[in-house]
Design a protein around this nucleic acid. Structure first.
Lengths: 185, 185
DNA sequence: GCCTACACGGAGGCCGCCTCCGGTAAGGTG
DNA sequence: CACCTTACCGGAGGCGGCCTCCGTGTAGGC
C-alpha cells in the first residue's frame, strides 16, 4: 500500500472511532470523510461499506477487551468473575452506540463478515469463564456462552436506548444474573 | 374534520400499518404517502413526525394486546400466566420491527409522548400478573413490572435482530425466566 | 529525472426528510 | 341553487446522506 494511502486510512479510522463513540453506528460517513479532510470517494475506497468500517474500528479496540479479560481473570471469586466478564462485554458493546445490532447479526451469521472475528474472541473468553463457573457449580448447566454474549448485547442495547437512566438496565441485569447463576440453596 | 381529511387520514394509517409491519419503523414515510396516493405534505400535516405516526399505528393495534391480556388471564397456573404475558408483550413489540427502541424511550420518558400511553397499559397489566405471581410465591420480590417490560423489549429486540434463527432469543428467554421466578427449591 | 500505476477528491445521481404555498373543492349560508 | 369562505390538498424544492465514476495528481520504482 502506498504511504499516502496508509496515512489516509489510519486517519479515517481514528476519526471514525471518535464519531462512532459520539454519534453511534448510524453516524454520517460523509461527516467522517469531511472531518478527516478527504473526499467521500477516498473513504469508500478504503472501507466499501458501513459494516466494514465498523468492524475495523472495533478491531482497533480489541486490545482493550483483551486487557479487560486479563483484569477479570484476576478476580478470585468464580461467580463474580463471570458477572464481571458479562459487564465488561456489555460495556465494550455499548461503547459503540448501536453496535449491538450488527454484532448480534454477526454472532450467528453463516458467512464470515469482519465482525465475526470480534465475536469469536468474545465467545472463546466467555466459554472459558463459563466453564470455570460451571465446574464450581455456580452457573446453570443449560446456559451457553452464546446465550451470555446475547445477553450482554441485549443489556448494551437497553442501556444505550435508555440513555442516562440506568435503572432499567440495572433491573434487567439483576434478573439475568439470577437466571444464569445457580440458586444458592 | 372535513370528510376528505378523515378519509385521507384513515387511508394513511392503514397503509402505514402494512409498511411498518413489512419494513420496520424506519420505513420511508414518503413511500407510505405514495402508496396512499397522496402528497408528502398531506402525510406530514396529519402526522407531524415519525413517532406520532408510529404511536397512532400502535394504538390501532392495542385492541389485540387487550385480547391477549384476556387470553392470558384464563391460564390457571400463576407462574405460566406471567411467562405467557411476557411472551405476548414480546410478540406485540416485535410485530413492529424496531419499535422496541422508541418504546423503551417512552417507557421512561418524562414528557408524555403518544407512545407513553401504550406503555401505561402494558405496565398496568404486567403489574397485575406480577402481583398475582408474587402473592403465590413464584416471582422474586425484587422484580418490578418496569423490569419485565424492559425484558420483553430486550427479547423483542434480540428476536428481530437475529431474524430467522430463534435459538438466541430462546436461550435469553430461558435465562430471564429463571431470573424472575423464585427457584423451586 | 521519468513514467506508470495507484490513489485522490469532488461532481453528480438518487433517495429520504420535511416545509411552504398556490390551487381546489367541501360544505355552510343566503 | 349559487356563492363564498376556509380547510385541505399535493407537489416543488431545499437539505443532507449514500454511493459511484472519472479526470487529475503524485508516490516511488527504475
Amino acid at each position: 500500500m502506498r504511504s499516502d494511502a496508509r496515512r489516509n486510512r489510519d486517519l479515517l479510522l481514528a476519526v471514525a472511532r471518535q464519531h462512532v463513540r459520539r454519534h453511534g453506528v448510524t453516524t454520517s460517513l460523509e461527516a467522517i470523510a469531511r472531518d478527516a479532510g478527504v473526499g467521500p470517494g477516498t473513504l469508500y475506497r478504503h472501507f466499501p461499506d458501513r459494516e466494514n468500517l465498523l468492524a475495523e474500528v472495533l478491531r482497533a479496540e480489541s486490545d482493550e477487551l483483551g486487557e479487560a479479560r486479563d483484569r477479570v481473570a484476576r478476580e478470585p471469586d468464580v461467580a463474580l468473575r463471570l458477572d464481571a466478564w458479562l459487564h465488561e462485554m456489555e460495556q465494550h458493546i455499548a461503547s459503540y452506540r448501536g453496535l449491538s445490532g450488527p454484532l448480534v447479526g454477526a454472532l450467528e451469521g453463516a458467512e464470515a463478515t469482519p465482525l465475526t472475528l470480534a465475536c469469536q474472541e468474545m465467545l472463546a473468553t466467555t466459554e472459558r469463564f463459563l466453564a470455570e463457573a460451571r465446574a464450581a457449580g455456580v452457573a446453570r448447566a443449560e446456559v451457553t456462552a452464546h446465550d451470555l454474549v446475547g445477553c450482554a448485547a441485549m443489556l448494551a442495547w437497553l442501556g444505550s436506548t435508555c440513555g442516562a437512566d440506568t435503572r432499567q438496565a440495572d433491573g434487567a441485569r439483576e434478573i439475568l444474573r439470577s437466571g444464569y447463576r445457580t440458586p444458592h440453596r
